[in-house]
Design a protein around this nucleic acid. Structure first.
Lengths: 328, 328
DNA sequence: AAAGGACATGTAATCGATTCCACACATGTT
DNA sequence: AACATGTGTGGAATCGATTACATGTCCTTT
């Protein structure tokens, strides 16, 4: 591996001068050319570890995901990358596999790797996490959960859920079932459920326990929840099922189809997430587009801005869009 | 930021000793405890830039993707991560946006970042790329393309395509259309097409130009290709369409459905990739599972092995699995 | 003609770790 | 008693860059 010293020797200059060639200092045209020629010949590229050690900047931003291979995650990462790559940053990826402790562990790790900032796709909120974030003392953005004291990009879960419920109501559904997730996830678990419940309450529609089930984000759990709902309410079937994610909605559709219910005539289904799949199902699924990629872009922009100058911690709420399709 | 020197001072030892605590050198139980206590109190974590500068190892492996937000990519990355995370490596992600030059650029960049190895999800082969790889002189794995002189993990595109074609033939299809991609991509563009063509030739089935179209991986291009095929062969419609990716197959299905053809009665459709979606389409799509995640794992294992000790460049062919579903 | 400024380059300290070598002491071996 | 061996610690060089400061030209200005 050739170093700056090798180049300096070969060009008969000091390494200071070589460094200046790369950092826009005073260098005569003459010397600059001589050095560049040698650089090209040797294929020299400066060691970024050394540079990072000296400058305290790495040109890397850390991204913490709950799970790599989900469509949401890959859209967000793609958005982040689109923005940061333009500024010649790279992404260091970590995956918590949905384990809370790992979030904190990775924040520490990323800090010791001298990343210039961190974006966290958050799935929960807890005091230790907040503490770890503030201890890291780095530009930090949370996506998806409102972390106190942290710049957060939020989806409007409450209103998305209530709009969707209202859409079902507008389509003459009076008996609306719900497939949710656990409340450890404040946004998906709690906010979306509140949106659903409040809307039913406001429109004086019945809320029945046997119409409400809790899954774990997976297609299979959507299937199981639908099964429970149907079985537990044989005499009083709902006419619509609202699942808080597309995947669970898909599982529900599958069960309904297996049981011979037709969608939406017998039972309507709606989800959230605007997965690619949702458009190509039969019938196409009514859902909510959260513009995940834009959320990633926005997060990256805010992060870059914070790196230049400390900002007050703010909250940004993303827009969303109802996509009405034939499943309702 | 606290450094090793701070810790050393606070513990009244030399920084050598502090370093030894983290690197399993001789340290008395007494001193080790004293140091660890201070480490905990201060939240000290060693600077990995400094460490990397000194040791020439970074604990980071570079991954070069053609496009981040595709299901294939995210499965592979997930597999890679699963393996390397266990050894405390992280992934540095780069996205070429399908631009050849960027592959080379990123190889250089990753090199200067002192990554310990690189995994490339390859989409093409060219001399400059090979040169750049050998110049980098790093443990290197290619996934998806057979790069000369580079350890490669290959999908068996030729046989997967010919098996799939044979499956169509076995289902009494004699007029089989094909939606492919450009031959710049040797694996998807060339091998899969060869598998298709050779099988037709061997079984004495007709190969007709108007049944062969070329898309660009997207769902829309699948739709357009299907449209062209149907329009160009009105008097002699194929009874099956083989698309080399699931996404293009989905586009084709969409067009066929719009035009009132029923699948598979009028025209059968098959794809490759075993996308999550394929299972939930109506009808479910016949496809080939390439076990992308396993490919990622395998790549990571080989890379880790190469990092320990240089190995001969080898070629590994992944197994695949035909998934026969109702679209055929 | 002396002073000041712009330009070009070099010297040396520094970033935060690792690691070779030396040294001190205690214990075991012959 | 002399020597080897094992254990625990520190000194100092080193990795490859950046950067404050110093130095030396050459030109312009007054």
């Amino acid at each position: 591996m050739t170093t700056i010293n090798d180049i300096a020797k070969m060009a008969n200059v000091s390494r200071t001068t070589v460094s200046r060639v790369f950092n826009n200092g005073y260098v005569s045209e003459d010397v600059r050319k001589r050095i560049m020629k040698i650089v090209e010949e040797t294929g020299y590229t400066p060691s970024l570890s050394a540079k990072s050690l000296r400058t305290k900047k790495s040109g890397v931003i850390g991204v913490i995901l709950p799970k790599i291979s989900t469509e949401t995650a890959s859209r967000v990462v793609s958005g982040i990358n689109e923005v940061v790559a333009k500024e010649n940053f790279q992404i260091l990826l970590t995956d918590t596999e949905l384990k809370k402790e790992k979030e904190i562990e990775y924040i520490r790790l990323l800090k010791s790797r001298h990343v210039d900032g961190i974006i966290l796709l958050a799935t929960n909120i807890n005091a230790d996490l907040i503490k770890a974030i503030s201890a890291a003392d780095l530009p930090f953005i949370s996506i998806g959960q409102d972390l106190p004291g942290v710049t957060s990009i939020l989806y409007d879960d409450y209103h998305a859920a209530s709009d969707l419920t209202n859409l079902l109501v507008a389509n003459h559904h009076k008996k609306i079932a719900f497939i949710g997730v656990g409340e450890e996830d404040p946004s998906v678990g709690r906010q979306r459920k509140m949106g659903y419940l409040d809307t039913l309450a406001k429109t004086n529609l019945p809320i029945r326990e046997e119409w409400i089930e809790e899954g774990d984000f997976s297609i299979e759990s959507g299937y199981e929840c639908a099964k429970k709902i149907i079985r537990n309410s044989e005499k009083n079937l709902p006419t619509a099922i609202f699942a808080v994610t597309d995947r669970m909605a898909i599982g529900a559709m599958e069960y309904l189809r297996e049981q011979g219910y037709s969608i939406p005539q017998d039972i309507a289904v709606a989800g959230i997430g605007a997965s690619t799949m949702s458009k190509h199902l039969t019938p196409p699924l009514t859902t909510v587009d959260y513009y995940n990629k834009d959320a990633g872009k926005k997060a990256a922009q805010l992060l870059l801005a914070q790196m230049v100058q400390k900002k007050d911690k703010e909250k940004y709420t993303q827009t969303y869009r109802l996509i009405k399709r034939d499943s309702v």
